[in-house]
Design a protein around this nucleic acid. Structure first.
Lengths: 205, 205
DNA sequence: GCTTGTGAAAGTCTTCACAGCG
DNA sequence: CGCTGTGAAGACTTTCACAAGC
């Protein structure tokens, strides 16, 4: 099997999410042009993407929703689920803890500086002081860290996570954090996303 | 001035955000390789990106932080600030209302289905029932809508916003929403972002 | 007819090499 | 010298055209 290009990986993840909805709604078959509309790309692109993973679930016409989902899950190695922790349990971090059922990963720990916060939060996720981060990350084989702390602490927390051994960082702070080679980082910055939209629609208005 | 490629726009937005931090920290000059490290790209790429906007703020060596920021702001037409509304005032939506000071846009309205919620929330942003969405969006010239409702309502709310005339959608729901041509949409889906990271680090572990 | 699958063409983006400037 | 600016080469992505299946 050929190496899957990065942009194709991104889209396959989105397709996988979309298929979950279809499955819930009892849709059994889906077409490349429907998926294209959902993702905002052409049907060519979808079909090309799917050609990287070997899909033999094209039953007659269209794709079998469940079969395609299985194929993507396997190609992207989404199972067994990897382990994730959330650092920073403010409003955002706390909200993320409850996201579990939507995720293709297990949130197995939450960290915060404030012991107070840890005791007050009601959640099924185990919570710890950030001082125990390295220990817990290693013990539980956590591979991905979600950074949900204020911006001035983001780099520090990222360094802690990397030092503890995670290989992926999802950063919600409005700061670009630096990670070493071999660690994959993704930013989810509300301010930046809004800027992008504003800039995009600015050309022609 | 040449047309700015989409990926360059994205990076310029990120650079702009990074420069804000530098400015706050009193840093006066910045190099292309520093910016590259922050964004996870090469210094070539940064310089090429900057070549699209006419930067005459290369004082000797490095870029003048303030000058570069001004240049990007102008090129991306970030001023005057565009107007934004948030639909859905659950935990996430409510959190976004308070993000104001980080943004290069003005949040001028929030909408929710529950009148109860609207009355209880403490915020300086004007809040309305979602039934008044179209009216308020038009009156206040709102150009961007942030969708922070549960996934089953996301498409409906998006359609409302588009019908009311917004030209940009930032969607936080774990669903891909469809928008017509001429409207720019960006998804910020936690589940999907995590999937991407998991998939990326899966190759080689 | 409608669909998918895929090599080849077209287009876009990144990297490189090197000129030019303080 | 170390930095920026940029045309040209190379890599990657998308689009197209069309063969093949239902």
């Amino acid at each position: 099997m050929k190496k899957i290009p990065p942009l194709t990986i991104e889209r396959l993840c989105a397709v996988y999410g979309a298929l979950r909805c279809h499955q819930q709604n009892g849709v059994g078959v889906v077409y490349s042009n429907e998926l294209g509309k959902l993702l905002g790309v052409t049907d060519y692109t979808i079909r090309k993407d799917l050609s990287y993973i070997h899909t033999d679930c094209t039953s007659g016409r269209g794709y079998d929703v469940e079969g395609l989902r299985d194929n993507i899950r396997q190609a992207l190695k989404l199972r067994p689920k990897k382990k994730v922790c959330v650092v920073g349990l403010g409003r955002l971090g706390a909200a993320l803890l409850d996201y579990g059922r939507f995720l293709d990963a297990d949130i197995v720990a939450g960290f915060d500086q404030s012991l107070n916060r840890i005791e007050l939060l009601e959640t099924s996720v185990d919570l710890f002081s950030v001082y125990r981060l390295k220990e817990v990350v290693r013990e539980r084989n956590i591979e991905v860290g979600v950074v949900a702390v204020p911006d001035h602490a983001a780099q520090e927390v990222t360094d802690l996570l990397v030092d503890a051994g995670v290989r992926g960082i999802l950063n919600f702070a409005p700061t670009n954090v630096i990670v070493p080679d071999g660690v994959f980082r993704k930013n989810m910055d509300f301010a930046n996303a809004l800027r992008e939209i504003v800039a995009r629609i600015g050309f022609g208005g």
